[in-house]
Design a binder for these strands. Structure first.
Length: 423
RNA sequence: GUGGGUGUAGCUCAGUUGGCAGAGCACUAGGUUGUGGCCCUGGGGGCCGCGGGUUCAAAUCCCGUCACUCACCCCA
């Protein structure tokens, strides 16, 4: 038996890094006023189809969709935004306070062909803001994301930003784009020809060389922004510049979800082969209304947790494994029983202690202590126990002291708590 | 969905022209009666991915299949 294709176990060896990233993210987001929200991993298919867009790759061919026993069409969430918007609307959060800042962390599912940095179950750290239309929110989110990467020690990432316009300016832009494309149709790939009717914006994002060449001088959303969108985008850029957040204005950045408006961005890396995006986001001012709420601006981003972990692993940026405070070597049945109780008591006091419950030779037990990187070893032998004492060995200095059993716990607590501070 | 690469011990990998299934690391026991790392000696471990075919004989050649992996596509 093994995991199904594209799914994987995250084993204890790599968990420390996941926890470190999660801790930094939660701390930072909390400082910016974000609250955690937890949402289901399954929703009605319709939710994703409506929000992400019927003609997108995600909805057309990547979703895990199935009928439950009653026949309802359900889908394993391919992204987090739709569910959070649904939650915002369902609980009528706009009524008591339309301004909300959320984050959530969890698995997403897309049935794509797996490769480096791409899995069918992958994790996202998701951030969403409702009720704030100002460009200051856009720049603040990008600033916050940038700050997280800095804290994690990531430097060779680049932020790509673009503006996709809004309901006002997009129709005119689409007309201009379609006009341009109609003269280049013979140079477009099959996919793009399909997109002409369904979602022409996506053609700009095509990586096929012939398409890229044909679209070199294609109109960009940036050249067709209405006054409001232009002001908005300028404010975002000005803020970022003043804050020292480096970015690249990328006119071809479109993104594969239909709900984006105005600012869209992506944080890219070269460390993951073809999978360049470590994080991506954008504004979605029409989505809340689309899902049945009042017109409410929204903006958010998602971080590819797995990819972030991989980038950091590649940089060798790994948290140190915590050493074991104490390993207990018990020789004989009487010693075993006494040690068992000491061991549990120390565990209760938060001292990382382990012992072996089998009857092994002392040499084997010492070897195990060494393997576990134990800082101290408590040796409970018959000779010492006969005098109500045990030996405490410092594994680094090889110093050994005899400790009376009466004061054992207090003595160990003292020594090992000091040890903790040193770490 | 399409294409390339790879599947042999827990891990990393050798395996010649088709001829007994191998190494290093890890594990385990001992050398040292009760003291770790280094060293030495022994031991356990294998459906050679799976199924079929060719052959006296297949890890090796052929066909199929599955998995992993990288890339296209798309995205986190």
């Amino acid at each position: 038996m093994q995991t199904i294709r594209g799914f994987r176990d995250i084993l204890p060896e790599s968990i420390a890094l996941w926890q470190k990233i999660e801790k930094e993210a939660v701390q930072l987001f909390t400082a910016f006023g974000f609250k955690e929200i937890r949402i289901p991993v399954i929703e009605k298919t319709q939710l994703f189809a409506r929000s992400i867009g019927e003609a997108t790759d995600i909805v057309e061919k990547e979703m895990y969709t199935f009928a439950d026993r009653k026949g309802d069409l359900l889908t394993l969430r391919p992204e987090g935004t739709a569910s959070i918007v649904r939650s915002y609307v369902q609980h009528k959060m706009y009524a008591s306070d339309p301004v909300r800042r959320f984050f959530t962390i969890g698995p997403m599912f897309r049935r794509e062909r797996p490769q480096k940095g791409r899995y069918r179950q992958f994790y996202q750290i998701d951030v969403e803001v409702f009720g704030i239309a100002s460009a200051y929110m856009d720049s603040q989110l990008i600033f916050m994301l940038n700050e997280l990467f800095l804290r994690l020690g990531l430097t060779d990432l680049s932020a790509h930003i673009n503006s996709l316009g809004c309901q006002e300016c997009r129709p005119a832009f689409q007309t201009a784009l379609l006009n341009f494309i109609s003269s280049k149709k013979d140079q477009l790939c099959e996919n793009c020809l399909r997109r002409v009717d369904k979602n022409p914006l996506r053609i700009l994002d095509c990586k096929t060389p012939s398409c890229k060449a044909a679209l070199e001088n294609a109109p960009a959303t940036l050249d067709h922004l209405c006054k409001d969108c232009e002001d908005h985008f300028n404010t975002v850029k000005t803020n970022l510049k003043k804050q020292g957040v480096a970015f690249i204005e990328d006119r071809s950045l479109v993104r594969g979800l239909d709900y984006y408006t105005r600012t869209a961005w992506e944080i890219q890396t070269t460390a993951l082969g073809a999978q360049s995006a470590v994080a991506g986001g954008g504004r979605y001012d029409g989505l809340v209304k689309e899902i049945g709420g009042p017109a409410t601006p929204g903006i958010g981003f998602a971080i590819g947790f797995d990819r972030l972990v991989e980038v950091m692993e590649q940089m060798g940026n790994l948290p140190e494994e915590l050493p074991l405070d104490l390993f207990i070597v018990a020789m004989g049945d009487d010693a075993m029983e006494k040690c068992y109780h000491w061991s549990c008591e120390l565990n209760q006091k938060g001292i990382c202690t382990e012992m072996d419950f089998g009857s092994k030779s002392m040499k084997a037990l010492m070897k195990r202590a060494d393997k576990l990187n134990a800082q101290y070893v408590l040796i409970a032998g018959e000779t010492e126990l006969a005098q109500d004492a045990v030996i405490l060995r410092n594994m680094n200095t090889k110093e050994q002291v005899t400790v009376p059993t009466q004061t054992l716990i207090s003595e160990l607590t003292r020594i090992l708590k000091n040890n903790d501070i040193k770490k």
